[in-house]
């Protein structure tokens, strides 16, 4: 409960600072560490790139470490974002030092939690599983979403599970699950993420006719979290 209060006070901190002129004290911790995890091909590299560029526009120094290459072929992938007021930090987050984990695939949260957990960590996860081939072949089993949720909620400060891929499918393209999560992340207000910066960054990355779809998907992500907050209040 205490961590939740600390998290909420962090939230208000940004609401007050809406003028968003860069200055000292905008990060709850220095550096602030975000892990984006998922399965190769889900768009985690894209998500971390867009997120990092939005934060650079906000005036931060950002280091992003990525694993890809062979991991692209159905393996687990992870991007490490180090967000800082002043320094270039190492492209690998030290163990026990994640502040937020954003997961495009739910079981990947539990894969990395034991290494990167601390008492303040927040988790934002997609609900849609991608079964490892070993599970498909019947050599190993995949826990139910309920079991995953229960496990994560027992361990972390606060966790949100949203149907990011399903929402993206409804809106026309399953790959945009990553942008649903990004919109949701912005709504947590744990980091200063501006919609206008998202528009600027995504406009550089996708064709013109795809910008409005990306914005709509981002907004849907925001809504999913707002609903969650309203429900709780």
């Amino acid at each position: 409960m205490r961590c939740l209060l600390r998290y909420l006070s962090g939230r208000r901190h940004y609401k007050k600072g809406k003028s968003l002129i860069m200055g000292v004290g905008k990060l709850p911790r220095e550096p602030f560490n975000v892990i984006v995890t998922g399965v190769g091909g889900q768009g985690s590299v894209m998500l971390s790139r867009v997120l990092a560029n939005m934060l650079v526009m906000e005036g931060f120094r950002v280091t992003v470490g990525e694993t890809f290459g062979a991991s692209q072929r159905g393996g687990s992938v992870m991007s490490h974002l180090r967000i800082s007021e002043a320094y270039t930090w190492s492209p690998q987050i030290p163990k026990g030092c994640a502040d937020i984990i954003v997961a495009l695939e739910p079981i990947e949260v539990i894969r990395i939690l034991p290494s990167y957990i601390n008492k303040n960590v927040l988790v934002l996860s997609n609900t849609r599983p991608i079964y490892p081939v070993g599970v498909i072949a019947g050599e190993s089993s995949y826990p139910s979403l309920e079991e995953i949720k229960k496990c994560v909620e027992r361990l972390v400060c606060k966790a949100w599970f949203i149907d990011a891929t399903d929402e993206a499918v409804k809106m026309g393209n399953s790959i945009l699950g990553n942008i649903v999560l990004l919109g949701a992340l912005s709504a947590l207000e744990a980091l200063p993420l501006r919609r206008s910066f998202f528009r600027d960054v995504i406009s550089e990355m996708v064709t013109e006719d795809n910008v409005s779809l990306n914005l709509a998907v981002y907004d849907r992500g925001v809504e999913l979290i707002k609903q969650d907050f309203d429900f709780r209040v």
Partner: peptide, 14 residues
């Protein structure tokens, strides 16, 4: 907590 939620390995695949 993870005893009840064993993570399956994700081996490389085509």
């Amino acid at each position: 907590a993870t005893k009840a939620c064993v993570v399956p390995p994700r081996e490389l695949s085509f």
